[in-house]
Design a protein around this nucleic acid. Structure first.
Ligand SMILES: [Zn+2]
Ligand SMILES: [Zn+2]
Ligand SMILES: [Zn+2]
Ligand SMILES: [Zn+2]
Lengths: 158, 158
DNA sequence: CTTGACGCGTTATGATATTACATACATAGA
DNA sequence: TCTATGTATGTAATATCATAACGCGTCAAG
């Protein structure tokens, strides 16, 4: 079973595992996980949440890295391009990918209470979308599917 | 058959029809279609494309309306709240709704060549998304589904 | 006639993102 | 070893998108 952001889990192990997969994935593609990039990924992995570029930048600056926007944007763009992070359009923010290496275009589930972001398998959704688009003669190349709602934890009165 | 942004059609009739539906829809809800709001809707209706708030603002200013961002944002927000326009997250832009009055949460199909935006019926897509979310215990309240690709016209070598 | 709700105009500011250029660093020939 | 080259980082400046806060005019209810 994949890590489940919405449920209690050993997040240390969770993020370590993702980090390892990320390293392996990058090594395979020959791209370099530099200190800035690695640190940004670690920061994103601290919680199952999306962070704005400027939030990331602030963290980087506090740790002695550059403090201008391109420093953060470049690292984030790198991670996105290499499938190690996703951009959440709705939030103007970025989240670590929980399945690096596996080619995928997930649907994002964003809890409006606790801001947790999870990736859901989007294949059936994507198939439905492709179908609807095909009815209009449209060819889908990339899709962003983002849902806002309540995660299990926040729905329970608990 | 609905108006088909991707195919040749009598757009004058197309936009007039939407405008009428919009007026009817607003009248039913008691909200007021003021000159600024009406003009913004007309501007959005000029083409099946999304426009940024500042593009709209520029048009408004050129016609003697206010030239500060809130003028455009207020009118656009009003239109979105009343179901007469949609916000396209991916583009930071707004498009007129082609089915005002009918409650709907469409999927958007955005041609990367000609920038045309169309609304596709999203019910099946939404159902698939709800299913995938339910598997994780997540309740979807609102979803944005936006596809980038090629419209029929731009795919043909023609 | 007053009052209050609403729409609009304006100033100012905040938040997000990119361009352009300079500098440092790695590594692969010569 | 010594450059040459590509890549990564640092920085300044600017562009783009969005909102907060305030004041004025209009109009209808009381
Ligand atoms: Zn975790
Ligand atoms: Zn939650
Ligand atoms: Zn039309
Ligand atoms: Zn097209």
């Amino acid at each position: 079973m994949d890590p489940q952001p919405f449920h209690d889990h050993d997040h240390h192990q969770c993020s370590d595992a993702v980090m390892s997969q990320a390293e392996a994935s990058l090594a395979a593609s020959g791209a370099r996980l530099t200190p800035v990039r690695r640190r940004v990924l670690e920061i994103l992995l601290e919680a199952h949440r999306a962070m704005g570029a400027y939030d990331v930048l602030q963290r980087l600056a506090a740790e002695g890295y550059g403090n201008q926007p391109p420093v953060a944007y470049r690292a984030l763009d790198f991670l996105v391009e290499h499938g190690l992070a996703h951009r959440i359009q709705r939030l103007n923010a970025f989240a670590a990918c929980m399945h690096p290496g596996e080619a995928h275009a997930p649907a994002f589930l964003i809890c409006r209470v606790c801001d947790t972001v999870a990736e859901a398998p989007a294949a059936p959704v994507r198939a439905a979308l492709d179908g609807a688009a095909a009815d209009l003669g449209f060819t889908v190349e990339r899709a962003s599917i983002e849902a806002l709602g309540l995660c299990p934890a926040c729905r329970e009165p608990s």
